[in-house]
Amino acid sequence: MITATIGGMSIGIAVICQVLGKLGILGKAAAKAHLGSVQILAVLAASAVLASAPPGRWIQARLTTVLGYSGPYVAAVSVTAAVIALLFVIAGVMRNAANGKTLAAAVLTPLLAVMAPGSTGEVMGHGLALVVSAAAWITRGLTGIG
Results as ranks from 00 to 15, higher is better:
residue 57 R to N: 11
residue 14 A to G: 04
residue 46 A to E: 01
residue 3 T to M: 05
residue 20 L to S: 06
residue 82 A to G: 12
residue 34 H to C: 06
residue 101 K to A: 15
residue 8 G to Q: 11
residue 31 A to E: 15
residue 128 L to G: 01
residue 89 V to A: 13
residue 46 A to F: 00
residue 62 R to T: 07
residue 75 A to S: 14
residue 97 A to I: 07
residue 139 T to V: 15
residue 142 L to W: 14
residue 130 L to T: 06
residue 9 M to A: 09
residue 96 N to E: 11
residue 55 P to M: 12
residue 27 G to D: 15
residue 70 S to L: 09
residue 105 A to L: 04
residue 69 Y to M: 00
residue 48 A to S: 15
residue 53 A to H: 11
residue 2 I to L: 12
residue 98 A to V: 09
residue 137 W to H: 05
residue 146 G to H: 02
residue 50 L to D: 02
residue 84 I to W: 10
residue 1 M to C: 12
residue 33 A to Q: 09
residue 61 A to K: 13
residue 78 S to E: 11
residue 113 A to L: 09
residue 93 V to H: 05
residue 23 L to S: 08
residue 120 T to Q: 05
residue 120 T to N: 07
residue 100 G to W: 14
residue 118 G to Y: 00
residue 13 I to P: 01
residue 12 G to Y: 03
residue 130 L to E: 03
residue 106 A to K: 02
residue 121 G to C: 05
residue 143 T to L: 14
residue 53 A to M: 11
residue 128 L to Y: 01
residue 141 G to R: 14
residue 89 V to W: 11
residue 2 I to M: 10
residue 93 V to W: 02
residue 98 A to T: 09
residue 34 H to A: 12
residue 7 G to N: 12
residue 80 T to E: 07
residue 8 G to R: 13
residue 91 A to G: 05
residue 136 A to E: 10
residue 131 V to R: 03
residue 91 A to V: 07
residue 28 K to A: 15
residue 3 T to L: 03
residue 51 A to E: 02
residue 82 A to M: 14
residue 3 T to V: 07
residue 64 T to Q: 11
residue 92 G to L: 06
residue 29 A to F: 04
residue 15 V to A: 08
residue 145 I to N: 09
residue 97 A to E: 12
residue 131 V to Q: 00
residue 142 L to Y: 05
residue 135 A to V: 09
residue 78 S to Q: 10
residue 52 S to A: 13
residue 82 A to H: 13
residue 52 S to H: 06
residue 94 M to H: 10
residue 99 N to M: 05
residue 80 T to F: 14
residue 30 A to M: 08
residue 27 G to P: 11
residue 92 G to Y: 05
residue 115 M to L: 15
residue 127 G to T: 08
residue 96 N to R: 05
residue 36 G to C: 04
residue 8 G to W: 07
residue 80 T to V: 14
residue 88 F to R: 13
residue 21 G to T: 08
residue 37 S to K: 09
residue 99 N to Q: 12
residue 123 V to N: 09
residue 124 M to K: 02
residue 98 A to Y: 05
residue 96 N to L: 05
residue 111 L to I: 14
residue 103 L to E: 06
residue 38 V to S: 02
residue 16 I to V: 13
residue 69 Y to K: 00
residue 43 V to P: 02
residue 5 T to L: 14
residue 22 K to S: 10
residue 45 A to E: 06
residue 66 V to I: 13
residue 141 G to F: 10
residue 7 G to S: 08
residue 146 G to Y: 02
residue 30 A to F: 07
residue 16 I to P: 00
residue 120 T to V: 15
residue 65 T to L: 12
residue 69 Y to C: 00
residue 58 W to L: 11
residue 14 A to P: 04
residue 18 Q to L: 12
residue 21 G to M: 04
residue 54 P to N: 03
residue 132 V to W: 03
residue 15 V to F: 04
residue 93 V to Q: 07
residue 113 A to N: 03
residue 88 F to H: 12
residue 119 S to L: 13
residue 129 A to F: 03
residue 54 P to G: 07
residue 54 P to F: 08
residue 30 A to Y: 06
residue 48 A to V: 04
residue 50 L to P: 01
residue 72 P to N: 00
residue 122 E to C: 06
residue 102 T to N: 15
residue 86 L to V: 11
